[in-house]
Design a protein around this nucleic acid. Structure first.
Length: 278
DNA sequence: CTTACGGCCTGTACGC
DNA sequence: TGCGTACAGGCCGTAA
């Protein structure tokens, strides 16, 4: 998916078209994605005004004027595309599942081939307690994700650190790409048990996580084949991946003479340099 | 409580 | 050309 930087990039791309605008049309073209759309989905949104877009972990949130909150997850292959006012959006494609049109004439289309994404509704009062939101760990770019917090929560865990980074209850928003990249930057083996990262290594890894996410956001999110930035422009952080998708290539940033290996951990590919990452 | 694993769904790339 | 297999950015429910 879209990991945190991509969702953040989508959010920023959508803001000019949605914030302060009324949804004059909401077209829900199937009854479910990963979960069913809630009852009254179209009715509760159509005619409503979008006050603000926010993000929690990989969830994109539309805050409506009537205190409804639309929760969106892009899953593995979800995208948001914008057709600016005055342009013809054309006919919906096969995997265009939800289409919004604003009072200004912009058309925002949610497309998700694999349908691992979701949309549901809650309200402002219930947002923090919503089952999709309540168990999420701290935002990696927020103050709560301190070196001390990270060290403490890793202590005693017997799972590999790579899996711990993917655990949204430990820290929210990191996916497979940025888990690999952060471990590379920190020089920590993805196979090392989380417990052994508690302490000094956590004080290297936490900043590496923040840095790689910030770099990716600054670059406009990375782009793989299923991801298109909200404004249709392509992000270019993928050119900066040190290890992700680079199996067999020389380790890019050290004189270690190593090469990038791919292993499988809990069913997901991990890319790393065994010489640099100890 | 923590951890591991299968399943969800479609498309694409690759080997034979 | 066709067919089978592996793999893809995530997450949840279940079982141990």
């Amino acid at each position: 998916m879209p990991e945190l930087p991509e969702v953040e990039t989508v959010r920023r791309g959508l803001i000019p078209y949605l914030e302060g605008h009324t949804l004059v049309r909401v077209d829900r073209r199937r009854k479910d994605l990963r979960i069913p759309f809630p009852r009254g989905f179209v009715k509760r949104l159509a005619g409503g005004r979008v006050l603000r877009l926010s993000r929690r972990a990989k969830y994109l949130l539309f805050h409506m004027a009537d205190e409804t909150v639309l929760i969106i997850h892009l899953g593995m292959s979800g995208r948001m595309t914008v057709t600016p006012p005055g342009q013809d959006a054309g006919k919906p494609g096969k995997h265009d599942h939800v289409i919004f049109e604003t009072d200004a004439g912009a058309v925002i289309t949610f497309n998700d081939v694999r349908r691992f994404g979701l949309m549901t509704l809650t309200d402002e009062v219930g947002l923090d307690d919503h089952k999709l939101i309540r168990d999420l760990g701290p935002e990696p770019l927020g103050n709560e994700f301190s070196d001390a917090y990270f060290s403490d929560i890793l202590r005693g865990r017997k799972t590999p650190i790579k899996a711990a980074l993917l655990d949204q209850k430990i820290v929210a928003g990191i996916g497979n790409i940025y888990a690999c990249e952060a471990l590379y930057r920190a020089g920590i083996s993805p196979r090392r048990l989380a417990d052994s990262v508690a302490g000094v290594r956590a004080t290297r890894l936490a900043p590496a996580v923040r840095d790689v996410l910030n770099d990716a956001i600054a670059a406009g999110g990375s782009t793989l084949k299923d991801y298109v930035q909200a404004d249709g422009e392509l992000g270019y952080f993928q050119h900066s991946f040190a290890v992700y998708g680079r199996e067999g290539e020389p380790c890019p940033d050290c004189d270690c003479d190593g090469s990038v290996e791919r292993i499988v951990q809990s069913g997901r590919s991990t890319f790393f340099c065994a010489k640099r990452q100890i």
